[in-house]
Write a protein that binds this DNA or RNA. Structure first.
Length: 261
DNA sequence: CCCGCAATGACTCAGTCCAC
DNA sequence: GTGGACTGAGTCATTGCGGG
């Protein structure tokens, strides 16, 4: 893609160019901006700026906070949300999941939280991966027994985690399952400090997983990316690739490092 | 393709209103 | 009184379109 320059893009209609210039100026201020400041920074004559701003107020692209001061309007948020809704996690993840699968040759899962469970919404795997247990897309798993589920629990308030434990009884599937609250809390502390989560044959004997979080533009945890493999085949060196892939998907969703959790 | 006309847009100026 | 926001009128430039 061609590099954008700092010069505003030339449009065939002058007023469009000026409108964009005003929006850019408004976007560069966190507080409402006076007409004087807007005309000075944009280089437009005050009356010209005023006319354009006035029309943008009518169409809600700009808010007139009080006479003479302006800020970006809610219409932009509405349009932004339309664009945002187009960027689904699955769409953003599919190519990167395939690449991670090609590198590890293990099953790569994308899952989201629904209530007290995680739901698998996509998967990259090959028939010859050797996995005995492959959970179908749409399949579910309890939060406390899955790596992605632990990621979601780790961002919950302590009160919410206790409530989850009470509701579900922390039912176990095998001898490795975490079934008591104290142990779960210790595990979640570990998840928070590491930034990734593991499932050590807790859901299925013979299957281990590791997961990294995918965050949206507001920093919210929206999905988990996990690698599941036969217990003896899961390699720690994949962890870096997993975390990096999750970060790339987050970036595609508009997440900026340091912008939030 | 060029020309003329009408519509639209951009701009300036003059003036009013209002807050300080 | 002064400065800034805003409006209306007038002028000039640009654009679109149809006819020759």
């Amino acid at each position: 893609m061609k590099m954008e320059t700092l010069e505003p893009a030339k449009t065939s209609i002058q007023v469009i160019e000026r409108m964009v210039a005003l929006l850019d100026v408004l976007a560069s201020y966190s507080d409402p901006v006076s007409l004087k400041e807007l005309s000075k920074v944009s280089g437009l004559h005050p009356s010209t700026a005023h006319r354009i701003l006035n029309d943008m107020v009518v169409t809600r692209f700009v808010d007139r906070v009080e006479p003479g001061t302006y800020r970006l309007g809610m219409r932009l948020l509405e349009l932004g949300n339309v664009v945002k809704s187009r960027l689904s996690v699955r769409e953003a993840a599919v190519d990167l999941m395939r690449a991670l699968h090609n590198k590890t040759r293990q099953t790569v899962n994308l899952s989201v939280r629904q209530g007290d469970e995680i739901v698998y919404i996509d998967r990259a795997f090959s028939e010859r991966s050797g996995m005995q247990v492959v959970r179908a897309i749409g399949g579910r798993g309890p939060l406390h027994l899955t790596s992605t589920g632990k990621l979601f629990l780790s961002v919950d308030e302590p009160k919410a985690i206790r409530a989850y434990a009470t509701r579900t009884g922390l039912a176990g599937h095998n001898k490795n399952s975490i079934t008591d609250l104290a142990r779960l809390e210790r595990e979640l502390t570990l998840v928070r400090s590491r930034g990734y989560a593991r499932d050590n044959e807790e859901l299925e004997l013979g299957v281990r997983c590791m997961a990294a979080g995918i965050h949206d533009d507001s920093g919210k945890l929206v999905a988990g990316l996990s690698i599941s493999a036969p217990a003896d085949r899961l390699q720690d060196e994949w962890l870096e690739d997993l975390v990096n892939t999750a970060a790339q998907i987050s970036a595609t969703l508009g997440h900026r490092v340091g912008a939030g959790v």
